[in-house]
Write a protein that binds this DNA or RNA. Sequence first.
RNA 1: GCGCCUAUAGCUCAGAGGAUAGAGCGCCGGCCUCCGGAGCCGGGUGCGCAGGUUCGAUUCCUGCUAGGCGCACCA
Length: 569
Amino acid sequence: MNLFKQRVADLVQSALANMGAGEDAVGPVLELVEIPPDEKLGDFAVPCFAFARTLRRSPVQIAEEIVAQADRPPWLTHIKAVKGYVNVKLHRGHVAQHVLGDILRAGEAYGSREPNGRTVVIDYSSPNIAKPFSLGHIRSTVIGESLARIFAHQGYRVVRINHLGDWGTQFGRVIGGYVRWADHDRLEKEPIKELFRLYVKFHEEAEKDPALEDEARDWFRRMEEGDPVALALWRRFRELSLLELERTYARLGIRFDDYTGESAYNDVSDIIEKLRALGLLKESQGAQVVELGDDIPPCLITKSDGTTLYATRDIAAAIRRQEQYNFDLAFYVVDSRQSLHFKQVFGVLERMGYEWASGMEHIPFGTLQFGDEIMSTRKGNVIFLEDVLNEAVTRVKQIIAERNPSLKNADEVAEAVGVGAVIFNDLVHNRIKDISFQWEDVLNFDGDTGPYVQYTHARACSVLRRADEQGARPMSDGFDRLEWEDSEMRLVRLLGRFGETVDAAAKGREPSTVARYVLDLAQAFNGFYHSNRILGSERQAERLALTDAVRQVLANGLRLLAMEAPPEM
RNA sequence: GCGCCUAUAGCUCAGAGGAUAGAGCGCCGGCCUCCGGAGCCGGGUGCGCAGGUUCGAUUCCUGCUAGGCGCACCA
């Protein structure tokens, strides 16, 4: 639809020029073009209030003059001045031909852009290993993956990075717990759960006996110094955890390109040397810091005991990523509570003189809350992602058994729909808002949910399948020669907005824009479906084409959300 | 104390300066021997408060109120 939007802008622009108001006087019209609130008014509208000052006439008059001055090209059927707006209706056949033709031609690539030669590296998910993958991690994981798909669709080369939390004092605690209380049988059978138990127990005991924290710090110091005993334990924990993690990612349809974790950056002496050489490093209370001006607190580079901090490793990681991938943009899909941390990291990189630091961006998201409490791994107050996925899949299986017992691949479909429900429930929310996790929301599949969208897609597939069985063929060309009805055009217009929806999602780094769009499209199609006959109608061929276009765009949208689109469910 | 984020319908949330502010959940009432009822249609009280910018503010700015979060050796 951008094509038509541009045409409308050009039309009005040249009408204004005829009236003696060139672009230098009134500015670009394109930015003003909008979609009227009521479709009866037209496809596009240009408000004329902004021209009133320079033209020294009322908006109502200006709109009328524009209408009088404007050309009447064949793609336009109606141009009218209403209360200071210029309202334009497009030739329905031209629009349908443009939109449906594009969808048919592009298929999976509909709504995408040509490769732009730019690279974006996206750091997301990045769980602490040796802790279970809790529900708290799902936001970063699904938002990051969706952004990866959206940016790939926008023509970027995307590098998916999982910056594993495989280093740090939490391993000191796990080792501390391991040497005291390990259940070796259980460690073999349920490694993650056992390691987690040790971690939680250690944390609880340390609240009673603060000396334990010193012991944990000591274990971590030994790791950093290369102590073979500490490292062997650490390596085992890491391997066990990674196996579990990869199984979960497989369920979510995610494959990372780079699993370089924090442990790769435990030697940051070169960074520290560079900071010192640049004169950025200052000593403060025994620690080394970089000062960042009056607005934000200094960034801590090393602790007083000489060990490194998260920020230091993030700085090292950023430099390595730039060297390895030569990125234009680097996203960090991380909890909004860490925004100060990223300001500090980016600030240090800028002060180090790295121009590419301007392409670094923290993509914050709100906290997932459970009831009134924030989920805290330390307190053991967590819900495991696997449990949520399993509950959702079980619920889907029940529904399939009730309503579609003859479905083939029922288990596979239940997995796609159950997992999709969980993903969608997260992505449909604006990412910056806090989400309160409710079982009844995740396990409800009516209304604005993933299964609703998938169901609509399956329904469209079902219609097309039946048509095929009857030998009915969708129309494939010549859409411009038809008279299109209101209800059909409503769908065509919506289909035509998919590309700009993906643009907006990319620009705002906001997957929920796509989630909202697929809901709108599903809703519009279901409305159409219930009030219009497709098969057996006089308009069967064009409505089948419309159905196929809806199927395609829903599938494309779901894919950008990292969801499956099963043809039956 | 300083800083960041949030405030829209009973609840969960859309609305990135424009014409009567929209969905879903829940509640009530409907849906054709026919393409999938995880569906469709109907029913409504709302932009936290006060200023400002603008032809026009739910949207931008300032202040206030309320909630959440962060602020040196955790990540």
